[in-house]
């Protein structure tokens, strides 16, 4: 078996892991590191439930090898405690079963960081990457718009 010892930077911490070359980041987060917030859904890059941030961009962790992330800054839902987007999802009740929630929050968090002035079209384009099978899209939209609005007031 081809294994590597990697130092990954996750949620502002350095973590040592031993991984197979073929291990996806999703598998390593959940199995090796106990970070189970990134959810296994389709495992095929379609649903977005496993979305995390890599160097502040949203990435589907099922579409990424852990070994590709050496030297990169990884942020998972566990690193989102008390962030504006997490709070907004709570305030707007932007979840039903909750399975898709961490993926949506990570994508939306990256959106407001990288595109603080995102319009409706851009928000839709980014969030189209995630699927909510409970169809809670209205509440999710309200939560994301709320953070965008508050940020624009601060500016």
């Amino acid at each position: 078996m081809k294994v590597h010892q990697l130092e990954l930077r996750i949620n502002n911490e350095k973590r040592m892991v031993v991984v197979r070359s073929a291990d996806t980041l999703l598998a390593v987060l959940r199995r090796n590191l106990g970070l189970t917030g990134a959810k296994p859904g389709c495992l095929n890059g379609d649903c977005g439930a496993c979305t995390i941030n890599v160097d502040r961009l949203p990435m589907k962790s099922c579409l990424m090898l852990a070994i590709e992330c050496e030297g990169k800054e990884i942020t998972t839902i566990e690193g989102m405690h008390n962030t504006p987007m997490q709070q907004a999802f709570v305030e707007h009740f932007a979840f039903q079963c909750g399975y898709c929630t961490s993926g949506f929050i990570m994508n939306a968090h990256s959106l407001i960081h990288n595109r603080p002035n995102a319009d409706n079209q851009m928000m839709k384009e980014w969030l189209d990457s995630n699927i909510c099978r409970c169809t809670g899209y209205e509440e999710i939209e309200r939560a994301v718009k709320d953070v965008l609005r508050k940020n624009s007031q601060i500016q």
């Binding site: 890059g45 990435m59 990457s129």
Partner: peptide
Amino acid sequence: ASEIADHTSRNK
């Protein structure tokens, strides 16, 4: 390019 797959997948 903007119509291939979805935005997050296109980051990869």
